[in-house]
Design a binder for these strands. Structure first.
Lengths: 231, 231
DNA sequence: AAGTGGTCTAGACCACATA
DNA sequence: ATGTGGTCTAGACCACTTC
């Protein structure tokens, strides 16, 4: 029921924006005016406004004031959970089966992985209720993740291990639809040419590549959900 | 070069986390300790810590202190730009061709759209350099967006119009890989069964559905990129 | 030149989780 | 019972932008 003053101010303003009462371009009252209106310190108003600005609802300009922002694109937060968690959430049994583990010398990792130095290559299949639902190909930079040389990844999928052991600073995902090749189809127990979701992820730590992974899901066994609330 | 004290504190701490010096679970010095170390007020430290907590780098617990977070899932910000902007960014000519516009009475919109009342149905094709690269099916709630009854959407894609005219509070995206049906393939000038990326988006304003849209892209003509920096 | 947001201070009190 | 984070205040000065 009761909320902080910060939240109340934020709520009042975003309600006016979302109701259309303050259309894009409207000037919001100055911080001093709002502080007087709420009978609080300007710092409290400022904090609320900063949060709204970071959420993209308003734009702030010195000397001019704060204005309701014009939306320019839809954005959404895509959660890419650990596959074991996905299966667990659906009440399915999860299993990882490694099919390859190889230490590669410098230059042997494929170009797309972006790893120039020595790397560890790992491939395997994720099963839910004993049905394969994703194949995974991964390369890990040994320079960036020296500890992974001691892991065999026979029982634990590398993604699960990396998540808890390696800090990263930037990640890029590419999502595509592709037809399953004959080899991929065999490992996923589907027909060649079936539409599959391809999820690629490059992970950096500072300027060094940490890992590149490609996961392939049969189209009817996986989808990605992204939710977004501006707030 | 020079930054605010807030940024400096944040940078120092995230550097220690990202370098691995402070692995997940490490207790970060108390706010009072950090304030003494930097010779500043606790509020300044608190602001830095709050930002780090919102970015997911740390977890704060009353009485216990703040701790380096254990990452549990990868998350990424998926930008879903207006398709006209995508084409423009690639230097391609963009064109929208409407193929259907129909006012529907209550109950006539498909269940998946979630719109119980009267709705406007719009379908069309997005072209880049005169090649179809997406088909779109959309339903707009007339109750939530009364102004759209006056739009014919012959020249402007509804997404472009809605972005600038309708405030929304929540959106959900679903991304899947599907095989093109015969009808879809014909409109996209591809072969039936081709792997396509299906992007669905439900948009709410408070508790009311505003619009539902499904866009279908040939797999080789579109992909989605999502970047993420924790900060 | 004037006035806005941006940052910071040195307190204060509170709520809550832990010990 | 204690000590942490959570919030807020009443000031202050600065930087930047617009007038």
């Amino acid at each position: 029921m009761t909320a902080t003053l910060d939240q109340r101010i934020r709520g009042d303003i975003s309600a006016r924006i979302q109701s259309g009462e303050w259309p894009p371009g409207t000037r919001i009252p100055y911080e001093t005016e709002l502080a007087a209106h709420y009978g609080c310190a300007r710092a409290t108003v400022s904090k609320a406004m900063e949060t709204l600005a970071r959420a993209g609802l308003i734009e702030r300009r010195r000397k001019a004031g704060s204005f309701v922002a014009r939306p320019h694109s839809q954005s959404a937060v895509l959660e890419v959970p650990d596959l074991a968690s996905v299966a667990a959430a659906k009440g399915e049994t999860y299993r990882w089966q490694r099919t390859r583990r190889a230490a590669l010398a410098a230059g042997e990792a494929p170009d797309i992985a972006g790893i120039a130095g020595a790397a560890l290559a790992v491939e395997g299949v994720h099963f839910a209720d004993d049905l394969p639902f994703a194949i995974e190909e991964r390369w890990i930079s040994l320079a960036a993740v020296p500890g992974c040389a001691d892991e065999d990844f026979a029982d634990t999928a590398p993604g699960t291990w990396l998540l808890g052991h390696v800090p990263w600073t930037h990640a890029r995902h590419r999502i595509r639809a592709v037809a399953a090749s004959a080899a991929e189809a065999r490992r996923l127990a589907i027909r060649p040419g079936t539409a599959c979701l391809s999820l690629e992820r490059w992970t950096w730590r500072a300027r060094d590549y940490v890992t590149y992974v490609r996961q392939l899901f049969p189209g009817d066994r996986h989808d990605l959900i992204a939710d977004f609330d501006p707030s």
